[in-house]
Design a protein around this nucleic acid. Structure first.
Lengths: 145, 145
DNA sequence: TTATTAAGAGAGTTTAAAGTCTTTTATTGG
DNA sequence: CCAATAAAAGACTTTAAACTCTCTTAATAA
């Protein structure tokens, strides 16, 4: 809807890992791919980017996998979106004009300002660990089936 | 940001034609492409779809072109978006789950409900003719340069 | 110290959106 | 009726996102 498919997978994966990291230690790629119903190799690529940008941690080898330490649980959805989709959603023009601005606005500039603001506030105020309980209780889902 | 590129062009073209239709009669493809700074052949394809769906009118031949009659000036941005991008923006799940719903929600379902609603209200309440004055006065723009 | 495990890296393929080109059809002014 | 004009239609190409595959590197447990 607002995010690229890559970003949708990224958010779902991070919420999965954040939840996983509470009790059991590390989650492997197969487990993550299964847990959010995404293509294994594809989510692997995405996780590489998230690790490189410090949003999640990983270790190789036996008992290795992906996890999120206590520090990183403070990250928000906005952090993920910025890393994966860039600033497009927060700064881009609704009609695709690269020079759209306060002084040279497109017709939708004003209306979209409020919407953009609401999205920004929602994403910056949502921490990646805050869904753990609902997910564990089966009140919210990260995959279809 | 929210729309496909095709849809961005579509909205800009319709606003251009709506404005054009106030005084001078019909606008040709070259003129429209120039007026919104879009690829000529591409906007031609898009306009075909809009005509087929009754959002704008056209006539062929000398003095032909695209125009919007008084009836159709009542159409809103939401009508254009529905024709070009479908219901995705209004109904799709933020995390890409096809079965996301009130009873089986993704973690972002609740937060996104309000945002989606605000977008919907903005688009359904914005008529395609309402920017004519601002466009004519050079207060709003449909292209960069 | 080596076999095994699991992520990292990079190249390759597929698919869908974006954009182009050519031919056909409709309109109209002469 | 005919030539010119302009949109309609459809096939085609390009580009970028989505997705896959294979090989490498790091960690560890025996």
């Amino acid at each position: 809807m607002f995010f690229s498919k890559t970003c949708e997978y990224a958010i779902r994966a991070v919420l999965f890992i954040a939840n996983r990291s509470e009790d059991a230690p590390k989650a492997g790629i197969q487990e993550i791919a299964q847990g959010i119903d995404s293509p294994g190799h594809f989510i692997a690529k995405i996780l590489q980017v998230l690790v490189r940008n410090g949003l999640i941690q990983s270790t190789k080898g036996p008992n290795g996998g992906f996890y999120i330490d206590s520090q990183n649980r403070q990250y928000t959805l906005a952090d993920i979106v910025k890393v994966v989709d860039g600033e497009r959603l927060f700064k881009g023009c609704g009609l695709g004009l690269s020079q759209c601005s306060e002084t040279k606005p497109c017709p939708l500039h004003e209306s979209f300002k409020g919407i953009r603001q609401q999205i920004y506030e929602t994403l910056t105020s949502t921490k990646i660990g805050e869904f753990n309980e609902a997910l564990n209780q089966g009140l919210q889902y990260l995959k279809e089936r």
